[in-house]
Amino acid sequence: MLLLRNYWLGLSAALALLVSGGALAQSPLFTPIYEVLTHPRCLNCHTLTDFPRQGDERRRHDQLVMRGEDNHGAPTLQCSACHQEQNVAEDKVPGAPHWGLAPLSMGWEGMGPQELCTVLKDQSKNGGKDLQALLKHMEEDPLVLWGFDPGEGRTLPPVDHTRFVELLEQWVNAGGPC
């Protein structure tokens, strides 16, 4: 048992090295952005599956909640059946305007920084947004803003929204290097 645990520790350390090594090979401007975008507050609804996830453990959403054709749930179990325009029930039930999943093309699960960065900028996948539009989306979209103020009981992305926007601006001004 102990041996097995050591093995895993070693393996995950090696993996971490690989990943961070990989990240170092990326644009350092994108690295902190990547860490925000892959936080469960963002990633749980930027999935590559036909369902959203929930919680820091990123478990499949209870109630068999589905993506649906318009990314807002099954026809008669829409996201808005439960999610309001703001958190309710003492923050137990999260909510923000137009609560829903990001389109499949904007799913980021399992991506490394370079791939995510490329996908993020790909206007065929990101809803036709150029860098400025991306910046605006992440600066103003209420669903994005919710991710930085998700309410009691939820962990936060590694930086606050103000800092996130600063990081984005730097990245955008540099031409969005990946």
């Binding site: 008669t76 059946a81 309001q84 029930a89």
Partner: peptide
Amino acid sequence: CGQALCGACTVHVDDQPTRSCVMPISA
């Protein structure tokens, strides 16, 4: 449940099933 977890409070809002226990009256 008061948290949209059980569905006992389901009503239709514009024909869509909605959990009335989490919908503020203002909405």
